[in-house]
Design a protein around this nucleic acid. Structure first.
Lengths: 233, 233
DNA sequence: GAGTGGTCTAGACCACACA
DNA sequence: GTGTGGTCTAGACCACTCT
């Protein structure tokens, strides 16, 4: 046996991936138990477990107690997306970041927004529209609702100076959120703010964040035409 | 001390998240060492480590050897995206899945595609255009290039019967990939295939997959107008 | 040099899902 | 019941990076 032991979980992971890619382990088939692999690889079962969990997280293995571990038939590819923090993204590219508030006023949201945010009767809302720019060119137009009943201190914030996003990150903790990506044609307002033609295809992010069961904020961001959001598989 | 010990890593994680959300631990500040927390929580250091790693993966903590663990100043939100497998997504919604190949022929890709795929001189390519539908209504129009030098067996595949994606999943392993999301206006061809007006905003996914350093396939998918891709934070 | 997180080990017990 | 993965423990050593 000239075979060297695999003494760390990355090595085990690499070997597991190799066996999947080269079809030594066929999709749908059971692979050996952790115990068997630990023996074969000459390491502890916990090390094998760590490696298999990582591969399972990536969507290539399906694990169930008692049933064992099998190679995924339909490897749902799970991509990890870093939601961009615009200031960082812009400054990281060597551009000058700019922020400009358009409006900031209490207002009653349309029914669709109220439903999404599961607003109670009597909740009041702050609407903030703003543009963020790179080297003076508009980059993102943002339309945001903040639930003042959840975050009362937002009423005193000066959103002409600080972006709502940065203020909220500092002052309004949230427990979870939902995010959706889509494409929309620029309407007159979006076209004007982003300086594109009406009807141009715009990449849109909708986000709602919650603190436990109370909606904190709902925001729709319109990205400059041509914007791409990238990641790796 | 009515305090009960935290005897599993999820409980530790919950307590850590609580301290971050309630600002007991302030962004930018160091938190206690794993050893100290293990003592406080009455569990093993490995358990604390597991919990802190999970929170760190979520982007809320930044950990460095020797420097310690601190609460992230700019919590880059990392979302886990499940790249949709269309057949599953459509059938999961209770619709009838359909696949229809439009063309499948060897062809020379435009320069941009060749560059993206880092094609060598002499590489030959198969182009496959297809439409996938839900209950007969077009859902996705797909334009794909397959590198026949990397995957020679694809030349014999019958893409009028099986979708290129499913064939590749079964027959062409890949090691990694890149994916990008954007918005485009429908051109004449896209509009015709998706039965939408020209210029309609279309959600687009571009994907390139690699087997080691050789490009396997490059695909652009145009989604029906109004499509949203959703996930949680 | 020294302190922190990263990982491995060996053993143990538990939870779950299958027969 | 029984076998599998999921997790915890206590201890140990290592790798990195800061001073």
């Amino acid at each position: 046996m000239g075979k060297t032991d695999l003494n760390n979980w990355q090595a085990v992971q690499a070997e597991v991936l190799r066996r999947i890619h080269t079809r030594i382990w066929v999709p749908g088939e059971l692979i050996p138990t952790e115990q068997a692999l630990a023996q074969e690889f000459g390491c502890a079962r916990a090390t094998v477990n760590r490696a298999l969990q990582a591969v399972s997280d990536a969507g290539l293995l399906e694990r169930r107690r008692k049933a064992g571990t099998r190679v995924a038939l339909h490897p749902v590819r799970k991509a990890k997306l870093d939601i961009p923090i615009l200031r960082q993204e812009i400054e990281g590219l060597g551009h000058r970041y700019g922020y400009h508030a358009l409006i900031s006023q209490t207002q009653t949201p349309p029914q669709t927004v109220q439903t999404q945010m599961q607003a109670d009767v009597g909740d009041t809302f702050l609407r903030v529209k703003s543009v963020q720019s790179a080297d003076g060119a508009p980059f993102v137009f943002e339309d945001r609702w903040i639930n003042l009943t959840t975050v009362p201190t937002a009423a005193q914030a000066d959103f002409s100076q600080i972006s709502a996003n940065e203020w909220l990150v500092i002052n309004a903790p949230f427990s979870h959120g939902e995010i959706a990506f889509s494409a929309l044609n620029a309407d007159a307002e979006v076209a004007a703010q982003l300086v594109v033609q009406q009807g141009a295809a715009i990449f849109v992010i909708d986000r709602i964040t919650w603190d436990e069961n109370r909606a904190v904020t709902s925001v729709r961001q319109f990205f400059q035409a041509g914007y791409q959001m990238q990641t790796r598989l």
